[in-house]
């Protein structure tokens, strides 16, 4: 069993919890899990498009957090550190399984992208938001990865370039294709 827990009556910061968990406080680690599991799981689910795989990946992420929590220095927010760890775990999973980005030329292949436009007056409602979430899961893995990293998680192309070992141009091209594919998918649902 992990060491004894500490009673808490007031909210504590992530950093306090991390320090307590690093010192062996099981309750602190559990609290970190409950605070962040949905975000980690959601990211895994979107990138993997499988609930089972996403749970397995979330489990692996938190085991990594448990193993590495002592190395968290607090230079960045814990959420940033956790997020990066999650992305790296998923990308490692992709590499092991040989998942690659969809092929595009370095400059990006933008032919045949002029689509019949959605009705410009149509707004994406709450229901459409769920449709969007679902449509993301239907993207090819390469497009999906870049789209999630950039548009959902807020990474810059330079960061994605480093993470995926591709050029910035490729990252931009994949993102554009992902957006246009999503537009098609959403259009087909209406």
């Amino acid at each position: 069993m992990m060491p004894a827990t500490v009673e808490r009556s007031e909210p504590v910061s992530d950093l306090d919890l991390v320090r307590a968990a690093a010192a062996g406080d099981a309750a602190a680690f559990e609290q970190l899990y409950h605070l962040h599991n949905r975000r980690v799981y959601s990211l895994c689910l979107r990138m993997l498009s499988s609930g089972t795989q996403a749970e397995d990946m979330t489990q692996e992420v938190f085991l990594q957090v448990f193993r590495k929590i002592g190395s968290f220095r607090g230079d960045s927010a814990f959420t940033t550190w956790l997020h990066r760890l999650t992305v790296n775990q998923v990308l490692m999973h992709f590499r092991k399984r040989g998942v690659k980005l969809e092929h595009t030329s370095e400059e990006g292949d933008f032919t045949n992208v002029v689509e019949t436009p959605l009705q410009s007056t149509r707004r994406i409602s709450m229901v459409d938001r769920l449709d969007l979430d679902k449509a993301i899961g239907e993207l090819p893995p390469g497009y999906r990865t870049v789209f999630i990293l950039h548009d959902v998680e807020g990474y810059e192309h330079e960061e994605i370039s480093g993470l995926l070992k591709v050029s910035v141009g490729t990252s931009k091209s994949q993102l554009h294709k992902a957006r246009m594919r999503l537009r098609d998918l959403l259009k087909s649902k209406h």
Partner: peptide, 12 residues
């Protein structure tokens, strides 16, 4: 709209 709503996706 896609970019806008991508930042507001629900958590699972």
């Amino acid at each position: 709209q896609i970019v806008h709503f991508s930042k507001q996706l629900p958590l699972h």
